[in-house]
């Protein structure tokens, strides 16, 4: 009888060592002009990842700027005509139009022709002259897009691109699919947009680093449950000419790379597409406007880094955000 505790201890120790190698499954996808790493845990992980990968490739076919036959490009080659699209595409386009209005024009999906002019799509970079930019900007303004009954109409001369919202929306849809397949714990990296499902398999929170806009590593970490963390910075896609750096996030007003004093803008919240749109918008808005915007809404959280290495975080994050060891930047809590 005295043996029983010993045997139970041995059995328990076996369980513990198996537990530490938890059923983690991972999948890497090359989609939406970037690469994505999906990690899921538990018995439904494989099934969930396959379903999520299918969903992503389907969305890529609808939203890709590179695929000529994508729904977005069909809309682009038929300006002035109502083009029937899927509900996913109509809904995302309508959302992006709303964001244009809400952000006072800081997020504009109709800037695609300007993005192209700079060479950010072909990678044949050059600096457009003022006259060229002025003429292209005459045809922008996402408030002029019409969406009705899953049909999208853009005015003559306009080209739209969903790059600033597609990955966020894809994260929302992929996370939903994972849950539908019974996955309770997963972390999705969609080209640097982070989407979590549930908490870690051991019940603890996810630890998500945020890229240092000045260097290689991370400047801070955020402890989170189920959420989205989306960061925009000038370090992701850019080119350099005569010692000056030109990044792909353009100011819709000038058609030039946004120089607002913000070098990294992170939005945290329940909806991926909203966070995706907001990280870009705040990068364009600059510190004061972004803070004013947050105060007027309070339905997301922010982490901003200015060019003078000041970190601004919204009040709800003050218990969950930590500067990386050795990072001595000042942190201001916005209330």
């Amino acid at each position: 009888m005295r043996l029983r505790p010993l045997i139970m201890l041995a059995a328990a120790s076996l369980l513990v060592s198996c537990g530490s190698s938890d059923a983690q499954k991972q999948r890497v996808l090359y989609s939406m002009d970037t690469y994505m790493t999906f990690t899921a845990y538990g018995e439904n992980a494989d099934k969930g990842l396959s379903a999520a990968a299918d969903v992503i490739s389907e969305l890529d076919g609808k939203w890709s700027a590179e695929n000529e036959n994508s729904e977005i490009n069909v809309v682009n080659i038929h300006p002035g005509q109502a083009v029937k699209v899927s509900t996913d595409t109509a809904s995302l386009t309508a959302f992006a139009k709303d964001m244009y209005i809400i952000t006072d024009g800081a997020l504009d999906i109709s800037l695609q022709s300007v993005v192209k002019e700079w060479g950010f799509t072909s990678l044949e970079h050059h600096i457009p002259d003022d006259a060229r930019l002025a003429s292209l900007l005459k045809n922008t303004g996402a408030d002029r897009i019409e969406i009705k009954d899953d049909s999208v109409t853009i005015p003559e001369g306009m080209t739209i691109g969903l790059g600033s919202v597609a990955k966020g929306a894809a994260g929302d849809i992929a996370a939903e699919e994972l849950k539908r397949q019974g996955v309770e714990s997963a972390i999705l990296d969609l080209g640097g947009n982070i989407r979590t499902v549930g908490v870690k398999p051991d019940g603890s929170e996810w630890k998500v680093g945020i890229r240092d806009p000045f260097g290689d590593g991370i400047f801070g970490v955020l402890l989170v449950g189920e959420t989205n963390i989306v960061t925009s910075g000038g370090y992701e896609r850019y080119f350099e000419l005569d010692g000056k750096r030109y990044w792909h996030i353009l100011d819709p007003e000038t058609g030039r790379p946004a120089e607002s004093g913000i070098v990294s803008a992170t939005a945290v919240g329940a909806e991926g597409r909203y966070c995706d749109a907001l990280s870009t918008s705040m990068f364009v808005m600059g510190k004061d406007k972004a803070i004013e915007f947050w105060r007027s809404r309070r339905d997301f959280d922010l982490i901003l880094v200015t060019d003078s290495r000041e970190v601004l975080i919204s009040e709800p994050l003050k218990e969950s955000f930590f500067l990386q060891d050795g990072c001595d930047w000042s942190v201001t809590v916005i209330e």
Binding site: T34, I194, G209, G233
Partner: peptide, 25 residues
């Protein structure tokens, strides 16, 4: 945390920040 990516050749070199679950960038 910087990944080095060659999309045309589907090659990704990742620096895994060993103490985090993911890095937003």
């Amino acid at each position: 945390s910087l990944p080095l990516i060659c999309l045309p050749n589907r090659l990704v070199i990742e620096f895994t920040a060993s103490d985090t679950d993911a890095v937003a960038r």
